[in-house]
């Protein structure tokens, strides 16, 4: 072997072996399992063909989980986008105490979803009268609400969405701040010379177009993260009696199908994982194409 070839494998080899073993092998194995009946086993014998896929695609619970993701995304993606951009602009334009505000909004990034779920479920949105939200309601003469236990109206969405907003707004704010600071001053100066007023007009014609890259990054990351939501759903909605039949996003659904206590159905779980992988890959490719088309 040539010296450089050996050096290349010395540097890249260890990682590549791991990547193969823990990413490519699992995907291949999973594709294989998805064609078999695989209950509580990883070496199945009964070949089913595409039956697991057909089962999943006609399974109401699986389709509902995709619906749950869509509902979640409809709230979380625009809210995160608007609020993190607003925070970034506000923090960036404040003279004094900018570092303080930036740290405060970024701090929840250090908190785990489990701990946030605890605070949201047991204190902020606790269903008893002593929960903070119910205390606030009481001030206005409202009756206490069982925030995480009511399906109609589905107040649990408020709990889930605010928890995630708190946890991730700071992260996206940091991205926007970095992007804002990369916009060259002379663009603004040129705009004022041309008669644009500071505020809406400079935002509309200078800031917003210059933020394009960050916008794409924030939307994409946010959407993919929402698709993988698990922690706060599991910890806020689940309790000692298990997980309620509603509000199961894809990963929660897959978790209970393939690894939950009611028998491990790895065949159908694998089929579900394959379907989700295809969806994510398709969305990633599609959004890359869509955003690139718009670029002059």
């Amino acid at each position: 072997m040539k010296g450089t070839t050996r050096a290349f494998w010395l540097f890249v080899g260890p990682f590549l072996i791991g990547l193969a073993l823990f990413t490519f092998v699992p995907i291949g194995w999973s594709a294989y399992l998805s064609l078999f009946e695989a209950r509580n086993t990883v070496t199945p014998t009964v070949f089913l063909g595409l039956k697991n896929y057909a089962d999943m695609l006609t399974d109401d619970a699986f389709l509902r989980s995709l619906g749950t993701f869509l509902a979640f995304a409809v709230f979380i993606v625009p809210l995160t986008f608007v609020l993190s951009l607003a925070l970034a602009m506000a923090v960036n334009q404040i003279g004094v105490a900018r570092a303080f505000f930036r740290s405060v909004f970024f701090l929840p990034f250090a908190c785990s979803y489990v701990v946030a779920s605890l605070v949201w479920k047991m204190s902020l949105f606790s269903g008893v009268e002593t929960g903070v939200a119910n205390k606030v309601l009481a001030v206005f003469g409202g009756d206490p609400i069982a925030w995480t236990g009511t399906v109609d109206p589905p107040w649990y969405w408020l709990v889930l969405v605010t928890a995630r907003l708190w946890l991730q707004l700071g992260f996206y704010m940091i991205l926007f701040i970095a992007a804002l600071q990369r916009i060259p001053d002379h663009l603004y100066e040129a705009a004022w010379t041309d008669g644009a007023s500071p505020g809406w007009q400079t935002f509309r014609y200078i800031t917003w177009p210059q933020l394009r890259g960050a916008t794409v990054a924030v939307l994409t990351l946010n959407l993919i993260n929402a698709f993988q939501a698990f922690d706060e759903f599991y910890n806020i909605l689940g309790d000692s009696r298990g997980y309620p039949p509603f509000a199961r996003p894809p990963l929660v659904y897959l978790y209970y199908t393939s690894l939950g206590s009611g028998g491990q159905d790895l065949g159908r779980g694998s089929a579900g994982a394959m379907i989700l992988t295809v969806i994510i890959a398709a969305v990633t490719l599609l959004q890359g194409r869509v955003f690139r088309f718009g670029r002059a």
């Binding site: 890249v12 590549l16 990413t23 999973s30 990963l251 994982a273 994510i280």
Partner: peptide, 25 residues
């Protein structure tokens, strides 16, 4: 090799938790 790395970026680890569990177990 680089393409393989980038391709695996498109598959979020959380979606492969079932297959990874199979390998690890």
């Amino acid at each position: 090799v680089l393409y393989a790395v980038i391709a695996s970026l498109m598959v979020p680890t959380a979606v492969t938790f079932v297959p990874s569990f199979v390998v690890v177990s």
